[in-house]
């Protein structure tokens, strides 16, 4: 699945200071209704994009409190957070609010 993943608010520093990543995420579809959700994407991102200090990004099984997530410019709190399902060409944005103002 082709996705665009963006990091902002300092999170880009965890992945070689690169803000925008065009990626192809493959996942195993158990049956036809199976969709890639943010839950799987988070662990994919952690494995494949985050190069250092993963604790700045993940806490427990979700993003660290203070990291905002938007899927196609929509707050993931409106779409079920970890259960948000993803589709081809979606844009997922992670922004840290934890850096100084």
């Amino acid at each position: 699945m082709q996705l665009t993943i963006e990091f902002g608010g300092g999170l880009e520093l965890l992945c070689d200071s690169k803000k925008i990543h065009h990626v192809n995420v493959e996942f195993e579809q158990q049956n036809e209704e199976d969709k890639l959700t943010m839950r799987e994407l988070l662990s994919w991102v952690q494995t494949n994009l985050i190069k250092e200090r993963p604790e700045m990004f993940i806490k427990g099984d979700t993003v660290r409190p203070g990291v905002l997530v938007l899927v196609n410019d929509c707050d993931w709190e409106l779409s079920g957070q970890l259960n948000t399902s993803l589709e081809e060409k979606d844009v997922v944005v992670f922004i840290s609010t934890l850096h100084g103002g």
Binding site: G8, L13, I95, G100
Partner: peptide, 15 residues
């Protein structure tokens, strides 16, 4: 942060 993001305001964010 949401306001800055949606308005595409130019800010700096490094600890």
């Amino acid at each position: 942060v949401m306001y800055a993001y949606f308005k595409k305001l130019d800010y700096f964010s490094t600890e």
